[in-house]
Design a protein around this nucleic acid. Sequence first.
DNA 1: GTCATTTGCCTAAAGGCTTTAGGTATGCAC
DNA 2: GTGCATACCTAAAGCCTTTAGGCAAATGAC
Lengths: 195, 195
Amino acid sequence: MARVGLTGERLAYAGAELADEVGFDQVTVSALARRFGVQVASLYSHVRNSDDLKLRIATVALSELADRAASAVAGRAGRDAVVALADVYRTYAKQHPGRYTASRHTASSAALQAEYVAAGKRNSELMRAVLRGYDLGEPAETDAVRLLGSLIHGYVALELAGSFDHSSPSSDDTWPRLLGAVDSLLRTWPERHPS
Amino acid sequence: MARVGLTGERLAYAGAELADEVGFDQVTVSALARRFGVQVASLYSHVRNSDDLKLRIATVALSELADRAASAVAGRAGRDAVVALADVYRTYAKQHPGRYTASRHTASSAALQAEYVAAGKRNSELMRAVLRGYDLGEPAETDAVRLLGSLIHGYVALELAGSFDHSSPSSDDTWPRLLGAVDSLLRTWPERHPS
DNA sequence: GTCATTTGCCTAAAGGCTTTAGGTATGCAC
DNA sequence: GTGCATACCTAAAGCCTTTAGGCAAATGAC
């Protein structure tokens, strides 16, 4: 009975890979056990249950996103920063569709998990930092965070679902134009109250 | 063994109600059978399988959305039409979270179901009709359809997930300001090629 | 190096959901 | 009333989740 060396963390990363391969919805404790060549029950020493596993995968995804987002916006501002940030999410979703789906998966117990919440905060604070460069003031800045967050997630979700597949122009052409439009909107925001 | 009068359609509507009550992910053939006081296997005369049931629920949701959208935009144009249309989706998602989730659920076999595809088309064509009023020309009009679609879905999804719950301003305050901003963006779209 | 302890992984079992196969009885047409 | 179609049933197999309890491998004390 050779020991495989399971840990909660290894399961989370292996679960993330599994999600990318078969879809986040298809990630099960059983499939993961199979992948490690181990009995199903063995995993229950490392994750509390199936929801716990999914939450750990979501945390992996949110953390990776925050890391990439931080690198992308470093040294950039304004439109460059917005484009770089938005590209991070879109690219990640294409490369890791299962992980991206996981990152948007809200479990009821998620709010109780410090690490998950912290990774979510890192992401939203990076976005706010980028938008602070437009000097909008409040409540416009929060409105802008919600606008950009909604647009990125909405676009990525629709694209991932294939909604843009069978019409022109290609999604690759639309995307930079939308970001340009958002940048010009931010620069001429209807109700600015700059500091 | 009193007959309950099951049909594919009744199952779809009952499944939609169940989705609103317990969440779309929790909708199972078993739960639906329980609700009708009937053995599980009995449902398989009316729906092909679990995915088929979910696709039928999604079709119910997409059709209801298209009906409401059509009523909302009738007799309106420009900003009024955009706001009315966007409100339809946001309000529907709040009233019927399970149905809304269903409407965004893409099964692999969905593309083969004529009714589902048709309901999806009705929705997107209503949005395009509203945006045609801004006289953007192509490809800007398609870009705008994708922008508005992404923004509405993204905002609704984040709001449903509770992302805007614990910060001010309230989501109710942000929403009309975002729609106003989008309207002004559409009226000053960077690269117009009007007819 | 041996022994004790921890713990990683095991077997076993119960319960739920999905789906198929084949049987019974109900409700309508006549 | 009789016949027919079919609505709903029982039975069963397969997979997933989760808990309980057991064996053996790694770790540390001496």
